Simulated scan of single mutants.
Amino acid sequence: MNIKGVLFDLDGTLLDTAGDMGAAANHVIASLGLPILSDDVLQCTTSDGSYALLRAGIDEALIEQHGIEELRGQMLAFYGQNLCHHTRPYEGVPELLAWLNQYDIPWGIVTNKPSALTLPLLAELPLFEHCRVTVSSDTLAFKKPHPAPLLFAAERLVMAPEQCVYIGDHKRDIEAGRAAGMTTIAAIWGYISAGEDPNNWQADHQTPTVLSLFNWLKDAVDVKR
């Protein structure tokens, strides 16, 4: 295996953002007099994004009455002002990124989060200081599961797609990575949607914890000592 670069999804892979994303969704849901979403629902819905979170707590009649884009705008406005109150890196992520930095292994992020939210969030967390490339949902005309964002990220790292591994907690991450010709790893610790079976994603590997991912990378990545 000739892995030289590492690309990550963000929400549910490097960062547990469910607390802040959930607070934003629940802000809108509560404003309509509805019961807020439970932590369990947030954990299995956050990776599907803002639309899914709102639909998990608001019935279709109210969504049609208020307009999903209006509700989403309210949610993202609240989230944009409260990006990092509860958000934390998963256990082991700081050590993993420090190891990549120590050995000068290029790494980056490919997320379906809009850049207006991604970039300010990363700026609040010093562990992302050495991220070589960040691709958000609006960086290109396409987003995951299209392979274009991953191919763009590999190009920015100055390496071939087959020299990269992509790690994510959603089926679309694995689909995008496979379509781009990268080695793919399913992050089983992340926001696995209810009813989803990662065994069906056809990832090259699955890792249940960040530590197990760390151990895999130590064996697989081409480290120049």
Score class of each variant (00 low, 15 high):
Asp16His: 01
Phe8Thr: 02
Ala98Arg: 07
Gly67Cys: 11
Lys113Met: 08
Gly57Gln: 01
Ala52Tyr: 08
Pro89Trp: 01
Ala98Ile: 04
Leu100Gly: 02
Arg88Ile: 10
Ala25Lys: 02
Ile58Gly: 07
Ala179His: 08
Asp20His: 05
Phe152Tyr: 15
Cys44Asn: 13
Ser47Thr: 09
Val41Asn: 00
Gly19His: 05
Ile68Ser: 11
Ile109Glu: 04
Asp9Tyr: 03
Met1Trp: 10
Lys224Ser: 14
Leu119Phe: 06
Val158Trp: 09
Trp201Gln: 09
Ile29Met: 06
Met159Gln: 14
Ala30Tyr: 02
Ile36Pro: 11
Phe128Trp: 01
Thr45Val: 14
His146Met: 14
Ala194Gln: 15
Ser212Asp: 15
Thr13Lys: 10
Leu119Pro: 02
Asp197Ala: 10
Ile3Leu: 15
Leu100Met: 07
Arg72Phe: 08
Thr13Ala: 11
Phe214Asn: 10
His66Phe: 14
Thr17Met: 12
Ala160Trp: 05
Thr134Gln: 12
Leu127Val: 04
Ala180Phe: 09
Pro149Gly: 06
Gly108Pro: 04
Pro94Ala: 00
Thr183Ala: 13
Cys84Trp: 00
Ser38Trp: 06
Ala220Trp: 14
Gln43Phe: 13
Gln163Ala: 15
Arg178His: 12
Trp107Thr: 06
Cys131Ala: 15
Trp201Phe: 14
Leu119Asn: 10
Pro120Ala: 01
Ala180Val: 06
Gly108Asp: 06
Lys171Tyr: 13
Glu70Leu: 12
Pro161Gln: 10
Glu64Leu: 13
Leu71Pro: 08
Ala176Asn: 08
Ser137Thr: 01
Gly195Ala: 06
Thr209Arg: 01
Asn2Pro: 09
Ala56Lys: 11
Val41Cys: 06
His170Val: 01
Ile185Lys: 02
Gly49Tyr: 05
Met159Phe: 06
Asp39Lys: 12
Asn215Asp: 15
Pro106Phe: 00
Ala56His: 10
Ile105Ser: 03
Thr87Asn: 05
Gln163His: 14
Ala56Pro: 12
Leu117Ser: 05
Leu140Phe: 09
Leu15Arg: 00
Thr118Trp: 03
Met159Val: 05
His27Leu: 00
Leu76Ala: 03
Thr184Leu: 12
Thr134Ser: 12
Ile105Trp: 01
Ala52Ile: 08
Ser50Val: 14
Leu97Glu: 00
Val221Trp: 10
Glu155Ala: 15
Lys143Asn: 04
Ala52Phe: 11
Lys171Val: 13
Trp189Asp: 09
Lys144Cys: 04
Gly108Phe: 05
Asp20Trp: 01
Val28Gly: 09
Thr87His: 08
Thr87Ser: 15
Phe8Cys: 04
Phe214Ala: 03
Ala180Pro: 05
Val28Leu: 06
Lys218Thr: 09
Leu7Glu: 04
His146Ser: 03
Asp9Thr: 11
Glu60Pro: 03
